[in-house]
Design a protein around this nucleic acid. Structure first.
Lengths: 203, 203
DNA sequence: TGACATTTCGACCGAACGTTCGTATAGAAC
DNA sequence: GTTCTATACGAACGTTCGGTCGAAATGTCA
C-alpha cells in the first residue's frame, strides 16, 4: 500500500504543476512520465485511463485548495473578517509557486466547459460548492451584523468570484503588476456596498 | 484572388466555431479539413503552419468582435448610455450561435496565458486595447457629467471585464440560468457607484 | 530460503498529429 | 492553342498520442 501510494502522490504532484501550465488536455502521459523518471507504462498502471488521471488531478487540486484556502479562512471568526481572510488566502493560492500556471480549477473551467464527461461534472459540482461557501460566508456576515440585512448573498458570491477571475486574467495573460491592487480595490467596493444600511437593490 | 480568398474565409469561419468549443489547441487541421470537405494539404496551403492558423483565427475573431460589439456600441452617445450599449452587445456576442463554445478570446486567454509565442502576444495586445477602450468609455462618461469626477476609469474597466468573465464562467461551466441576471445586477451596482457624487476611494 | 503480491519496465499497437512533396486541374493571359 | 499561375489533391513523412501485454524487478512475510 505504501510504495504505490507514494509514487501516486509524486505523480499527482507533478501532474498538478503541469496541468496548471498546459491545461488538462495539454497534460500528456509521456511527458509526465519522463519528467518523473518513470516509464509511460509504469505511470499508466496507477490510473486506468487518461480521463481517470485528469479526474484524479482535479480531485487532488481541489483537496489542496481546501487545505490552503477554505479551511484556514474558516478559522477566522464569522463575518467580514472571515471574508477578508478568504480573499487573502485565495490570492496567495493563485500565486503559489507549486502552480506555475495559476489556479488549476480556473484553467480547467475554460477548458472543460464544453466537454461532457466526468471531469467536467466533477469540476462543475465543486465550483458550485465553492460559490455556495462564498454565499454562506456572506450570510454569516449578515447574521452577525457586519453586513446589511437585505444583502443578496448569492449575488455577492458571484461578484467575488468574478473579481477573482479578473485578477487571474489580469495577472496571467496581461501580466499587469497592478492586478492585486485592482482586485483589492474591487473587494473594498464590494464590502462597502454590503455594509451600507440601505443601498441599491435592482432586479 | 477571389477564389482562394473565399475558401480562406470559409476555413476561418469554421475554425472560429471549432476553436470556440475545443480551444485553439484542440483545433486540428485534419478535423477542420474533413468538416469542410477539403483535404488536409489543400487546407494547409492557405496557412504556412498551425501557429499561423491559430493567429489568423484570433485575428478573424477579434475583427468580428469589433464589428459586433465595439463599433455598434460606439455609435451610442458618449456617457453612461454608451457603456450600457457596450454591455448589451457584449452579452449578445457571448451567446452568438456562431460561437457554440462562447467567446473565443476568453477561451484562448486561459489557454495561451503560459504559452509564449505570436498568438499569445497578439491576444494580450488586443485584450489590452479592449481594457483601454473600456477605460476611455468611462472617461467620456466622466467628461459629460454622467459619472463622478474622481472615478478611477481603469478600475472600472477592470471591474467591468471581471463581471463579464464571471458571466462566462457562470453560464458556460455552471450553466446557471441566472447568469445574465447576475451580471446585470453587478453592472447596476458598478454604475450606481460611478454615479455617486462622492464615495469610497481606497488605495 | 521460498512463495507471493505489488510495482515497474520495455516493446509494441493503431490512430492522429503537423508537415512536405509531387502532381493534377482549373481559369486567365498571351 | 499554349503558357502561366492559383488552387486543390493524395500519399507519405516522422513523431507523438493513449493504451496493451508479458516479463522482470522489488518488495513482504512465512
Amino acid at each position: 500500500m505504501t510504495r504505490g501510494a507514494e509514487t501516486r502522490e509524486r505523480i499527482l504532484d507533478r501532474a498538478i504543476s503541469l496541468a496548471s501550465r498546459d491545461g488538462l488536455g495539454g497534460l500528456t502521459i509521456g511527458t509526465l512520465a519522463s519528467e518523473l523518471g518513470l516509464s509511460k507504462s509504469g505511470l499508466f498502471a496507477h490510473f486506468g485511463s487518461k480521463e481517470d488521471l485528469q479526474l484524479e488531478v482535479l480531485r487532488a487540486a481541489v483537496a489542496r485548495f481546501e487545505d490552503a484556502v477554505m479551511r484556514p479562512a474558516f478559522r477566522a471568526p464569522r463575518g467580514e473578517r472571515r471574508l477578508r481572510s478568504l480573499l487573502d488566502h485565495w490570492l496567495r493560492w493563485a500565486t503559489d509557486p507549486a502552480l506555475p500556471g495559476g489556479c488549476v480549477m480556473v484553467a480547467a473551467a475554460a477548458e472543460l466547459d464544453d466537454q461532457e464527461g466526468r471531469p467536467r461534472d466533477f469540476l462543475a459540482a465543486k465550483q458550485h460548492e465553492l460559490l455556495e461557501s462564498l454565499a454562506r460566508t456572506a450570510r454569516f456576515a449578515v447574521e452577525c451584523g457586519d453586513f446589511r440585512a437585505d444583502l443578496d448573498a448569492e449575488q455577492l458570491a458571484f461578484d467575488l468570484y468574478s473579481i477573482f477571475l479578473g485578477y487571474n486574467h489580469s495577472k496571467r495573460l496581461l501580466r499587469d503588476p497592478r492586478a492585486e491592487k485592482r482586485v483589492r480595490a474591487a473587494f473594498e467596493r464590494l464590502v462597502a456596498d454590503a455594509r451600507a444600511a440601505k443601498a441599491s437593490a435592482k432586479a
